[in-house]
Write a protein that binds this DNA or RNA. Structure first.
Lengths: 249, 249
DNA sequence: ACAAAAACGGCAAAAACATGCAAAAACAAA
DNA sequence: TTTGTTTTTGCATGTTTTTGCCGTTTTTGT
């Protein structure tokens, strides 16, 4: 096997799997690991891949994984937030859960907007109260320290009394079969109540969380009216959700 | 699994769920917990996450706004806070209003203290939720933007349901004839309810506000069990209050 | 205050790496 | 073709990195 051939093969494998192992390459190409190592070294020098201990990683892998600065997916979440804000009309009553995406949305609410927001999440609350025009209603009850959200029977009872126009949920995991799922029982109960109390349910999630799931179901896909991700609505990742009857924005 | 891959996976999981556990990561990636711990250590060093006992937290979660801006009479309020904390015993239920003095108290609560605090004040709430052991109950209702406290019929109804041991009030004005007075009608209503719902009422105020009054009465002096200022209890400024039957600390 | 869980630090085995070297192969020029 | 030079490759050697293990210390929850 020629040197150029070998290196082409390495890049080929790299495109396929995003990673290669020196040992495996050596075995597959029937050359010594030293040779492979030298090849990897050259390719790394040429900027064709990223050399790591034990093998190499594709450049694409690195971009995807490490392009985030301080706040992960900040820009994606900003896009999602803007789309969600588009659904909120003047004088609406909006129920919102917690989560960084919701916080991002709260921060970006246009200053002139007059609407009423209802939440039990402390961090979201903090974002809302600095807005000049919106009304804020707090759902009271015991505070769940991990999620920093009010949970409990009273919170759920209060939410049941609400007739909101929108319920906007930050989502931990969403999946075609299982719908929205979460890991905290108390939070799940709360979200269920919020969905029941609103005319329309909006689900915010970064594309990464699509097709993942956790232990407890919040609701099925059918109960979701809008799904918002940072992707273009026509993206092929979203197609199954469109087929399932969800409006994707 | 390569080291970089592992670390990318950790960040991935972290940004998905805002927290990771060393044990779970070790099991999922089929490496020892020591390896995970070392990975977390490196990532923490690089500022990609926040290492905590048992795992790590995402940077995004850490965004809490504690504006430690110049609080008026900070040192006096710290003294008052300490005296007030002396009244709080284990397992007590404590109703608190808002105000910078109460916030100061909340920040200084000893870490081991196990008690339940009930409040409708957003800034106070923020201080409470970062305490490791106390339970926090939020009184829900509409948020009064000026006072950053929940107000309204529902809030008052919820407070009426409470049987607290202590009601600790930050005070705007106190006076021998008029007792505690305030300027915001909604806040006054709320404070009245809080006093009624607790066995003992504690009034916190800096000496400056002694012998001043505002338009609306919260309660008379007789309803106050403890008066706490930064002054020595024997100070002559406080003597009239002692005579009126208030316990001055 | 106590028991369990987690973190720390050192250790050692294994894997991966770097380096030097020599044989083999490829190449260039006579 | 022959000869000398360069490149490539595999191997031996010693070094570094990585990783799991283990005993000790720290932290945590009850």
């Amino acid at each position: 096997m020629l040197k150029k051939e070998r290196q082409a093969y390495i890049l080929h494998r790299l495109n396929l799997h995003n990673k290669v192992l020196s040992t495996k390459l050596g075995a597959d190409m029937k050359v010594s690991e030293d040779t492979v190592r030298r090849d990897l070294q050259e390719l790394a020098q040429a900027g064709k891949l990223i050399k790591v201990h034990g093998g190499a990683l594709s450049l694409a892998f690195n971009e995807v994984q490490f392009n985030s600065s301080t706040v992960y997916s900040q820009s994606q979440k900003a896009i999602i937030a803007q789309k969600a804000i588009g659904l909120i009309k003047e004088q609406m009553y909006v129920l919102t859960s917690g989560g960084t995406t919701i916080i991002e949305m709260a921060k970006q609410l246009p200053p002139h907007l007059k609407a009423t927001f209802i939440t039990g999440s402390i961090p979201v609350l903090n974002a809302y109260v600095s807005h000049p025009n919106i009304n804020v209603i707090v759902v009271g009850d015991r505070v769940n320290k991990e999620a920093r959200i009010t949970v409990g029977a009273s919170a759920i009872a209060r939410i049941r009394e609400v007739n909101a126009d929108l319920c906007i949920l930050g989502t931990n995991a969403i999946d075609l079969q299982r719908g929205i799922t979460d890991s905290d029982w108390e939070v799940v109960e709360l979200k269920k109540a919020m969905i029941a109390a609103a005319a329309k349910t909006v689900c915010l999630t970064i594309a990464e969380k699509l097709n993942s799931f956790e232990a407890l179901q919040v609701c099925g896909l059918k109960q979701i009216d809008y799904l918002i991700t940072e992707l273009d609505p026509g993206d092929k990742l979203l197609r199954p959700y469109v087929k399932a009857g969800v409006t994707v924005l």
